[in-house]
């Protein structure tokens, strides 16, 4: 069937998230990171991926979930975007799942906010599992305003402009 598609799945807290395999470059174990001061919390740090500097975005932060327990090491899902590659930090990597377009639905209207804008749709899987398809552009839409807000909340000195 040509309406089937392959999704790379990964776990974040209780959520099962997915992205089309075509936009996932690779999956990596936890990498040493260089933190970025003054950046908003969603920026976990910078990774050296074979000579390329890749920004790691913590999905837990994006989804407003509590921070990962200190002992748990996140996994990197390296995704390709129009502006280069970015790594998403997730809890656990799942299988590549074959889903049918027929199982797809728009996200329910009751979904709460951070998640609502970050999810494109839902695939109903068997055994009462739901796979949430990420809206990658939104997930990665972090700009100067986000950093400034984070800095203001923390009461840090601000860039004057």
């Amino acid at each position: 069937m040509n309406t089937e598609r392959q999704l790379c799945s990964f776990r974040l807290g209780d959520l099962l998230l997915g992205l089309p395999v075509s936009c996932v470059q690779e999956v990596l174990r936890f990498q040493q990171m260089t933190r970025v001061p003054m950046a908003c919390g969603a920026i976990a740090g910078l990774i050296n991926l074979r000579g390329q500097i890749v920004t790691a975005v913590d999905l837990r932060q994006r989804f407003g979930l509590p921070a990962r327990p200190a002992a748990a090491e996140p996994m990197n899902v390296v995704v390709r975007t129009a502006d280069g590659i970015v790594s998403l930090l997730v809890d656990e990597i799942g299988d590549v799942l074959l889903v049918d377009d027929g199982s797809y639905e728009a996200p329910p209207a009751t979904l709460r906010q951070p998640a609502r804008s970050l999810i494109r749709g839902v695939h109903k899987l068997d055994a009462r599992r739901l796979l949430l398809l990420l809206e990658l552009d939104r997930v990665l839409a972090i700009d100067a305003t986000a950093h400034e807000q984070a800095a203001r909340r923390a009461g840090q000195p601000l860039g004057a402009g």
């Binding site: 260089t34 910078l46 500097i53 920004t55 700009d143 100067a144 305003t145 986000a146 860039g159």
Partner: peptide, 22 residues
């Protein structure tokens, strides 16, 4: 720096050091 970090005016970029870290 990637698009997500370009709003930070404290940094001009990043570099990979001799030990492989950024």
């Amino acid at each position: 720096l990637s698009k997500q970090l370009q709003g930070l005016q404290a940094f001009a970029g990043a570099a990979i050091m001799g030990d492989g870290r950024v």
